[in-house]
Design a protein around this nucleic acid. Structure first.
Length: 227
DNA sequence: CCCTGATTCGC
DNA sequence: GCGAATCAGG
């Protein structure tokens, strides 16, 4: 498959609309997720929440930046001795732990307020006994909820979604990608164009000479042929 | 393991 | 320019 204008347009719409690369890929068909991502980047699209890009160092360099590059070094074996990073000079007081006991469950709730040590005892079944003041209202009152049968979305129920696009349907976007009611025009296309007659008029406007304002700009195409 | 996007690099 | 391979976080 090749990246035709239409496929690129679909890629852009979906990418900017928040679709994942996988979704875009199998919507387009014939391309892999990687291909979509690669193409998107080559198109200049990018900066979508990536799971592996938390932050970036700002160009402030207080000290000389370490000359060590990232050095991806795929599989190049480094015959040198394995690096032995010095152990962190922290943790001066690693307290000795008492021997772990397995017969009694350790207290799971470290008391944040040592001033008021809570008295907790262990019941026969291993549960923690609570004092009268320990009640915390963990009782989840059954929320009176009314579950509504899942609908795709009442907003776009009979609107033309991205998946409904075809060569016969107007691709004029209605609304903005990412909004819940974003959809496409869906009218029958003006033959030979990706839009219906009305939106062809929006998409292709003749450049009129300055000052030459004619109230009815004639459509250069489409419309019922008058003969 | 599954998913995600980013990046690299041979083609 | 393309995308598989790979990386790396969730």
């Amino acid at each position: 498959m090749s990246w035709t204008d239409e496929r690129i347009a679909t890629l852009k719409k979906m990418w900017e609309g928040g679709s994942t690369a996988s979704q875009i890929a199998d919507e387009l068909g014939g391309v892999s997720r990687n291909a979509v991502i690669g193409k998107a980047h080559r198109l200049g699209l990018k900066a979508r929440p990536s799971p592996v890009k938390p932050n970036e160092d700002k160009p402030e360099a207080k000290k000389a930046a370490a000359p060590i590059a990232k050095a991806p070094v795929k599989k190049a074996a480094a015959p040198v001795a394995p690096p032995r990073p010095a152990p962190a000079p922290t943790a001066p007081a690693a307290e000795a732990r008492p021997a772990p006991r397995s017969d009694i469950p350790s207290q799971p709730l470290p008391n944040p307020t040592p001033d008021l040590p809570k008295i907790v005892s262990v019941g026969p079944g291993g549960f923690l006994r609570q004092g009268p003041g320990d009640q915390q209202a963990p009782i989840p009152p059954a929320p009176p909820r009314r579950l509504v049968p899942a609908k795709p979305s009442p907003e776009i129920a009979d609107k033309t979604s991205l998946l409904d696009l075809s060569d016969k349907v107007c691709r004029w976007p209605m609304g903005h990608p990412g909004e819940p009611d974003f959809h496409f025009c869906g009218q029958a296309v003006n033959p030979g164009f990706p839009y219906c007659v009305e939106h062809c008029g929006r998409a292709y406007q003749a450049q009129l000479p300055r000052g030459a304002r004619r109230p009815p700009p004639p459509l250069p195409f489409g419309g019922p042929r008058v003969r």
